[in-house]
Protein backbone atom coordinates (compact mmCIF):
# COMPACT_ATOMS: atom_id res chain seq x y z
CA UNK A 1 0.00 0.00 0.00
CA UNK A 2 1.33 3.41 -0.92
CA UNK A 3 3.07 5.37 1.82
CA UNK A 4 0.66 8.31 1.52
CA UNK A 5 -2.18 6.08 2.79
CA UNK A 6 -0.21 4.88 5.82
CA UNK A 7 -1.82 7.52 8.05
CA UNK A 8 1.22 7.65 10.34
CA UNK A 9 1.03 10.63 12.70
CA UNK A 10 4.69 11.55 12.29
CA UNK A 11 6.60 14.02 14.43
CA UNK A 12 3.51 16.22 14.78
CA UNK A 13 1.70 13.40 16.57
CA UNK A 14 4.73 12.35 18.57
CA UNK A 15 5.29 15.80 20.06
CA UNK A 16 1.62 16.50 20.77
CA UNK A 17 1.55 16.51 24.60
CA UNK A 18 -2.24 16.61 24.93
CA UNK A 19 -4.78 13.75 24.80
CA UNK A 20 -3.01 11.08 26.88
CA UNK A 21 -2.49 12.50 30.35
CA UNK A 22 0.44 13.60 32.48
CA UNK A 23 2.75 10.73 31.46
CA UNK A 24 2.61 11.84 27.82
CA UNK A 25 3.35 15.42 28.92
CA UNK A 26 6.37 14.11 30.87
CA UNK A 27 7.49 12.16 27.78
CA UNK A 28 7.27 15.33 25.69
CA UNK A 29 9.14 17.41 28.29
CA UNK A 30 11.84 14.74 28.61
CA UNK A 31 12.41 14.77 24.86
CA UNK A 32 12.33 18.56 24.64
CA UNK A 33 14.70 19.04 27.58
CA UNK A 34 17.02 16.37 26.14
CA UNK A 35 17.23 18.20 22.83
CA UNK A 36 17.66 21.53 24.66
CA UNK A 37 20.53 20.14 26.73
CA UNK A 38 22.17 18.70 23.61
CA UNK A 39 21.96 22.13 21.94
CA UNK A 40 23.39 23.74 25.10
CA UNK A 41 26.26 21.22 25.19
CA UNK A 42 27.21 22.01 21.60
CA UNK A 43 26.95 25.76 22.27
CA UNK A 44 28.94 25.41 25.47
CA UNK A 45 31.76 23.51 23.73
CA UNK A 46 31.86 26.22 21.07
CA UNK A 47 31.86 28.96 23.73
CA UNK A 48 34.71 27.49 25.77
CA UNK A 49 36.71 26.63 22.65
CA UNK A 50 37.12 30.35 21.93
CA UNK A 51 39.76 30.44 24.67
CA UNK A 52 42.06 28.72 22.18
CA UNK A 53 42.00 31.96 20.14
CA UNK A 54 43.41 34.01 23.00
CA UNK A 55 42.23 36.14 25.91
CA UNK A 56 40.62 38.80 23.73
CA UNK A 57 38.42 36.26 21.91
CA UNK A 58 37.42 34.69 25.23
CA UNK A 59 36.48 38.06 26.74
CA UNK A 60 34.55 38.88 23.61
CA UNK A 61 32.53 35.67 23.96
CA UNK A 62 31.91 36.34 27.67
CA UNK A 63 30.53 39.77 26.85
CA UNK A 64 28.00 38.03 24.60
CA UNK A 65 26.90 35.40 27.11
CA UNK A 66 27.04 37.45 30.32
CA UNK A 67 24.01 39.52 29.45
CA UNK A 68 20.42 39.32 30.80
CA UNK A 69 19.50 37.32 27.69
CA UNK A 70 22.41 34.93 28.21
CA UNK A 71 21.50 34.51 31.88
CA UNK A 72 17.90 33.79 30.96
CA UNK A 73 19.13 30.98 28.70
CA UNK A 74 21.18 29.62 31.63
CA UNK A 75 18.12 29.71 33.91
CA UNK A 76 16.19 27.66 31.32
CA UNK A 77 19.16 25.26 31.05
CA UNK A 78 19.10 24.78 34.84
CA UNK A 79 15.38 23.93 34.66
CA UNK A 80 15.87 21.49 31.79
CA UNK A 81 18.81 19.85 33.53
CA UNK A 82 16.96 19.30 36.83
CA UNK A 83 13.75 18.04 35.19
CA UNK A 84 15.64 15.75 32.83
CA UNK A 85 17.60 14.26 35.75
CA UNK A 86 14.60 13.80 38.06
CA UNK A 87 12.30 12.36 35.41
CA UNK A 88 15.17 10.32 33.96
CA UNK A 89 15.74 8.59 37.31
CA UNK A 90 12.00 7.78 37.45
CA UNK A 91 12.18 6.30 33.96
CA UNK A 92 15.30 4.25 34.66
CA UNK A 93 13.70 2.71 37.76
CA UNK A 94 10.36 2.10 36.01
CA UNK A 95 11.95 0.63 32.91
CA UNK A 96 13.52 -2.03 35.09
CA UNK A 97 10.04 -3.04 36.17
CA UNK A 98 10.00 -1.24 39.56
CA UNK A 99 7.24 1.09 40.81
CA UNK A 100 4.77 0.20 38.06
CA UNK A 101 2.43 -1.95 40.11
CA UNK A 102 1.78 -5.67 39.83
CA UNK A 103 -0.13 -7.57 37.19
CA UNK A 104 -3.57 -8.63 38.37
CA UNK A 105 -7.18 -9.04 37.40
CA UNK A 106 -8.23 -5.81 35.63
CA UNK A 107 -11.46 -4.34 36.94
CA UNK A 108 -13.74 -1.76 35.41
CA UNK A 109 -13.08 1.16 34.78
CA UNK A 110 -9.69 -0.39 33.95
CA UNK A 111 -7.27 2.20 35.32
CA UNK A 112 -3.78 1.13 34.31
CA UNK A 113 -1.67 0.34 37.36
CA UNK A 114 1.54 1.33 35.58
CA UNK A 115 0.21 4.90 35.45
CA UNK A 116 -0.14 5.02 39.23
CA UNK A 117 0.11 7.84 41.77
CA UNK A 118 3.82 7.09 42.41
CA UNK A 119 4.63 7.82 38.79
CA UNK A 120 2.54 11.00 38.77
CA UNK A 121 4.07 12.13 42.07
CA UNK A 122 7.59 11.65 40.68
CA UNK A 123 6.70 13.70 37.60
CA UNK A 124 5.27 16.52 39.71
CA UNK A 125 8.30 16.42 42.05
CA UNK A 126 10.62 16.68 39.01
CA UNK A 127 8.65 19.69 37.75
CA UNK A 128 8.66 21.30 41.21
CA UNK A 129 12.41 20.74 41.66
CA UNK A 130 13.07 22.24 38.22
CA UNK A 131 10.95 25.28 39.08
CA UNK A 132 12.75 25.74 42.43
CA UNK A 133 16.17 25.40 40.80
CA UNK A 134 15.17 27.93 38.13
CA UNK A 135 14.01 30.39 40.78
CA UNK A 136 17.28 29.98 42.72
CA UNK A 137 19.33 30.30 39.50
CA UNK A 138 17.39 33.39 38.47
CA UNK A 139 18.02 34.90 41.91
CA UNK A 140 21.79 34.34 41.60
CA UNK A 141 22.19 35.26 37.91
CA UNK A 142 19.63 38.01 37.45
CA UNK A 143 19.62 39.42 41.00
CA UNK A 144 21.87 42.25 42.09
Amino acid sequence: MAEQFSNREGIKGMINPTRYGLERVAYWMQRLSGLGLLAYLIGHIYETSTILNGKAAWNNMLSLTQTPGGHLVLVIVIGMCVFHTGNGIRLMISEGGKGIGRPGQPEYPYRASSLNYKQRLCIWVSIALAALAMMYGAGVLLGD
Binding site: R19, Y20, E23, R24, R31, L91, E95, A112, L115, Q119
Partner: peptide, 11 residues
Amino acid sequence: HFAGSCSNVCP
Protein backbone atom coordinates in the same frame (compact mmCIF):
# COMPACT_ATOMS: atom_id res chain seq x y z
CA HIS B 1 10.12 5.40 26.28
CA PHE B 2 7.28 4.70 28.72
CA ALA B 3 4.97 7.52 27.61
CA GLY B 4 2.10 5.35 28.91
CA SER B 5 -0.32 6.37 26.13
CA CYS B 6 -0.94 2.71 25.20
CA SER B 7 -2.22 1.92 28.68
CA ASN B 8 -4.17 5.16 28.77
CA VAL B 9 -6.31 4.12 25.78
CA CYS B 10 -6.58 0.33 26.31
CA PRO B 11 -10.31 -0.54 26.60
